[in-house]
Design a binder for these strands. Structure first.
Length: 286
DNA sequence: CACCATGTTCCTTG
DNA sequence: CCAAGGAACATGGT
């Protein structure tokens, strides 16, 4: 469930559940996700500490832990492509791909990740490379324009660069460009100032709407089956708009554009799928 | 068997 | 050194 809105919704979900909880013990079932931290180091750092807060930065979850009388430390989590984090009752059966399990007493915190691309680590170095938060005051249209001005890459590819702005992934990059009415193929530096402003607005609207949507829907974080915490797929409760229906272009190849009816086009850029409407999303201004 | 998948990092090539 | 493109990572779904 991994782009910024999904991580934000997860952070909001976990924060009140984890605050002030004590980590009694740590079980590492797949050490790969700790990279480059060792299982020994993780256990030593976490065992007996208290969880102080859960926050998000880009697509990363930041868990602040503290041992009595010592300085707080940050534990960094990332969901990769298939990661999930949730609480299970103590003693409940763990999923096949549980990577790390924290014993919190009455419950256990589970980091599950089918493909193990995610991370659960004490290494905070990646955070230094991140660009501004897209919904913060630091992310201005001017700043965006400046960063795009000398970039020859297609704008879609550039939006995935986490040092430009933190948190956009493959789905919302396509979605934001559709909202902005811009072709994903245009070189970033070719965007006119007015187009950059439209893109800036579209990025923020797309991400905040997704957070709003995820926040209002009852997500099943720990369950199997539908709506299992990934809010991309599966129907929303009460017959309201489903997660899939919410997307305007992503994964809609050959389906009619919701704006003009033209079949949505799929192309490959930097080895990732891009979806767009070749009629609504122009490369030249106006 | 083939191809696809919400992400990041490393390697090669130019 | 930089940019761009691709492969790798690992598992599962269609």
């Amino acid at each position: 469930m991994p782009e910024m809105p999904e991580v934000e919704v997860l952070a909001r979900h976990l924060a009140p559940l984890l605050r002030r909880r004590i980590i009694h013990s740590v079980e590492v079932r797949r050490a790969r996700v700790l990279r480059p931290t060792s299982a020994r180091a993780l256990k030593a750092a976490l065992t007996g500490t208290k969880l102080v807060s859960v926050r998000r930065r880009g697509k990363y979850l930041l868990f602040e832990i503290q041992r009595r009388g010592t300085a707080p430390r940050t534990l960094v989590g990332h969901l990769g492509m298939t990661g999930r984090m949730y609480l299970l009752a103590q003693g409940a059966a763990l999923p096949k791909h549980a990577a790390v399990v924290l014993d919190l007493g009455s419950e256990q915190f589970v980091f599950e990740d089918t493909r193990y691309f995610g991370r659960f680590t004490l290494d905070t170095s990646v955070l230094g490379e991140l660009g501004p938060e897209p919904l913060s005051a630091e992310f201005t249209a001017d700043k965006l324009a400046g960063a795009l001005a000398r970039c020859a890459q297609p704008i879609k590819v550039k939006l995935l660069d986490q040092s430009l702005v933190a948190g956009i992934g493959n789905i919302y990059a396509s979605e934001a460009l559709f909202r902005a009415g811009l072709s994903p193929r245009v070189a970033a530096k070719r965007l006119k100032p007015e187009q950059v402003i439209r893109l800036w607005n579209a990025i923020r609207a797309t991400l905040s709407e997704a957070i709003g949507f995820g926040s209002t829907v009852a997500l099943n974080y720990s369950g199997n089956g539908e709506r299992d915490g990934l809010f991309y797929y599966g129907a929303a409760p009460g017959g309201s708009q489903s997660y899939v229906e919410r997307l305007l272009v992503y994964d809609r190849e050959n389906q009619p554009c919701r704006n003009c009816g033209t079949p949505i086009t799929r192309i490959v850029q930097a080895a990732r799928s891009t979806f767009y409407c070749r009629s609504c999303q122009l490369s030249s201004p106006r």
